[in-house]
Amino acid sequence: MLPQRMKKGIMDNPKKLATLIDLVNLPSTLREFVGQSQSSRLGCFRRVWSYIKDNNLQDPKNKNIVHCDEKLKSILLGKTQVELEELPMLIKLHFPKNQK
């Protein structure tokens, strides 16, 4: 029943939805990585995830672990290694709540 609840959550909460899909001005570090001055949080997430896939940054033995290259490091708090499950959280850091 989880998905139903979540679907409803999104429907009921246009503000939350907005933080996910509204285009916002990106901070300079992210702007460099994404190559655009504006993006949504969702778009940014997908960009980072496809960057990881395209550059084979996942650990071959444990795919849950990503070895950051210099470029990725610059946007993920300078970590050399992150876990995939942290990714949405880390990206969210670039999208503070009150930004307009």
Partner: peptide
């Protein structure tokens, strides 16, 4: 198996099963 979950996420969007937003929020 988080990495596999990410792949399922990709498939859900590729196959038009769900909208990007629905797939991502889940």
């Amino acid at each position: 198996r988080v990495a596999e979950a990410y792949e399922v996420f990709d498939y859900a969007i590729e196959s038009n099963s769900l909208t990007e937003v629905a797939a991502y929020t889940t």
